[in-house]
Design a protein around this nucleic acid. Structure first.
Lengths: 230, 230
DNA sequence: CGTTGTGAAACTGTTCACAGCA
DNA sequence: TGCTGTGAACAGTTTCACAACG
């Protein structure tokens, strides 16, 4: 989805790795979640079992995991704790990540209050809006967006989330970048332009619905069309 | 992300088409949005210009559009209105689509009130929750989820949106399916299982953040470690 | 001319199938 | 024996590059 998402090379961390396909990175995040739901009694899991629980086939899962090294036990499976640790390490979950949210409407509220973030190592440390300034949400107080500009570099290493209306999104991005943010998740239905080196991932509700709508129509058409076939 | 997202074949509509790659379907939804932002004065647009505005390269865009037929003018470009109509027609935007939302927390509210939907031909026609029952949002009143079970097939052809907590998501899906829904957008951080023929798209905030986090770490690592390779 | 539309090449990602190991 | 790890075949997607055409 990202415009120029190429292969990902990583050098840091415990083990040096070579370019892992973007698609595998995304699935690894899923496996990690599924592992969290695994019965804590269970200490070993096979590729077949984990694949089934994750909605992929086992060959793909084994391939994905093999990018992280080979630490499964043949004839047995993967040790759950090791596997979880390896994926977490690879994805960079080991360290805590901080998040700032721009745009505190309904969506911003939903994100700010979403417990699933903390559970996965993400802490919301800043909320910004043009209005709503001063409102308290949990431990945080909504600050004016202008505050971002006044502290250049302050939010380096943080992940930015844009939850503004479309027409404010570009400005929100520019402010985030000024504040040192280089990774951004954009919920606004707008295409944003920015400098090289800034990652922007877009989550676009309307597009998702359109894709579903497309498939829905296909289903309906094939049920309906008999006479319509030509 | 859909488990078995195959190639898409469509027969209905004005023009018969053959299998369009899934990736192209997703991008066509993007082009459609971008076209809506085009200066209304402008009546023709080149692949180069539209591609730039959409964040893809022009060859890819031309290939995507060529799946819908060939109606551009060589040496000139695409007529904006025709192009828009063709894509909309292909994606099934021509007809209005109805949406029902299960789970009326912050996120459900955000979605229910999101103007971008109506603008794209989606009308929210039902809101369901266990609590909040009776609350009015716009023209709608929140109904108990049990109402879904009492009207089997009532929502056939609708698109379902799951905005519940993870532990209620599977039940929400089952209820939606009972009510006739076969296309679902799931915002809950849970993997859902369902019968064949039901499309479930997952939008998972935590996974998106993890992917960003991964890239963020890669950037930081390459800045930190070895000075400058080449 | 300039831009579309598209074969063919290149590339990326997935699946098969089985050798190798615990 | 059973399951991992992986070469090799395959499928899907992107890019190149240019002929066709208004």
């Amino acid at each position: 989805m990202a415009p120029d998402a190429d292969v990902s090379t990583i050098v840091g961390s415990t083990h040096a790795r070579r370019s892992v396909p973007e698609a595998s990175v995304a699935r690894l995040a899923t496996y990690l979640r599924v592992l969290d739901d695994v019965d804590p009694e269970r200490d070993v899991i096979s590729s077949e079992a984990l694949a089934a629980a994750s909605g992929v086939n086992s060959a793909k899962l084994r391939r994905d995991i093999s990018f992280l090294g080979s630490f499964g036990t043949r004839g047995v499976g993967y040790e759950v704790s090791t596997l979880r640790a390896r994926i977490a390490d690879f994805l960079g979950i080991a360290e805590q990540r901080n998040v700032v949210i721009v745009g505190i409407g309904n969506l911003g509220h939903a994100l700010a209050g979403y417990g699933g973030l903390a559970a996965r190592g993400f802490t919301v440390v800043g909320l910004f809006d043009i209005d709503q300034v001063g409102e308290r949400i949990g431990d945080l107080v909504v600050q004016p967006v202008s505050a971002l500009r006044e502290t250049p570099g302050r939010y380096a290493g943080h992940i930015g989330v844009i939850a503004t209306p479309a027409d404010a999104a570009q400005q929100a991005l520019d402010l985030l970048v000024d504040a040192g943010v280089t990774s951004v998740l954009n919920f606004a239905p707008a295409l944003l332009s920015t400098a090289e080196g800034i990652d922007v991932r877009r989550v676009d509700l309307a597009s998702e619905l359109q894709i579903l709508s497309f498939h829905e129509r296909r289903k309906t058409a094939s049920r309906t069309s008999n006479g319509a076939a030509s």
